[in-house]
Design a protein around this nucleic acid. Structure first.
Lengths: 113, 113
DNA sequence: TCGAGTCCTATAGAATGTCAACATGTGAGA
DNA sequence: TCTCACATGTTGACATTCTATAGGACTCGA
């Protein structure tokens, strides 16, 4: 007990959805492609592992934000491409605003001497 | 299912510690005082309920970041005042930098068209 | 002095999201 | 044919937060 608090968590819980929605805003991508895109647009800060990504994708598909379709990857592998639905775009907008609200509030807290 | 996404989570998981550390950076406060201070410095954005606050305080005390001592509140009630330890200040610094790193990364992701 | 309301701390149980580890199948190239 | 990289997925554990509930102690008014 009372270790050095490993604090293994890589992502801030709750931000993964936003990053996925954002990664798909340009074009449909397959799972690993989303993972790479996120790493790219966050400048290497976030690395999403399969065990986090796939449950999230399924959850978001369930919610109606993503629509999957099978296709072929750049390397001729069978790959499941996800694209944003209309609801997904609305959700991206909502979560972006929510992030900005939260982000501003915490910035204020950090400045309050 | 597929309600309007109640999104019960109020706080981004992991930010509560930072807010508590920040709330205590000026002076020791008791539990409810911390709660009020957080609401104040985040401009009403975050309202920390007792069921979230006290487990967090105990956890952070366990980690050695906070030192409690019993005293009297402004209203003559028995109250447990928490002050930051040296380790707590270091932690505050660490988590602040971590927040800024993450915050910048997500801002970058949001801008990436 | 008695009751109601507020202040303050606290716990239990459930829900959620993330992680590490593992599993499977397929195409490409040696 | 063998191996490696690609791609998708599942499982079980874990930490954090939420809702709901509880109760002691002080104050104030009747």
């Amino acid at each position: 007990m009372s270790e050095l608090a490993p604090k293994t968590t890589n992502l801030l819980q709750g931000t993964l959805d936003l990053l996925i929605l954002r990664a798909l805003s340009l074009e449909p991508l397959h799972g690993l492609g989303i993972s790479r895109r996120i790493e790219q647009i966050t400048r290497g800060t976030f690395q999403v592992k399969p065990g986090s990504l796939f449950p999230a994708l399924h959850r978001m598909e369930e919610a109606g934000w993503l629509a999957p379709s099978w296709g072929e990857s750049e390397n001729n592998r069978k790959a499941k491409y996800y694209r944003l639905t209309a609801a997904g775009r609305r959700q991206a907008q909502t979560e972006t605003e929510e992030w900005q609200r939260i982000s501003l509030a915490i910035a204020a807290a950090l400045q309050a001497t």
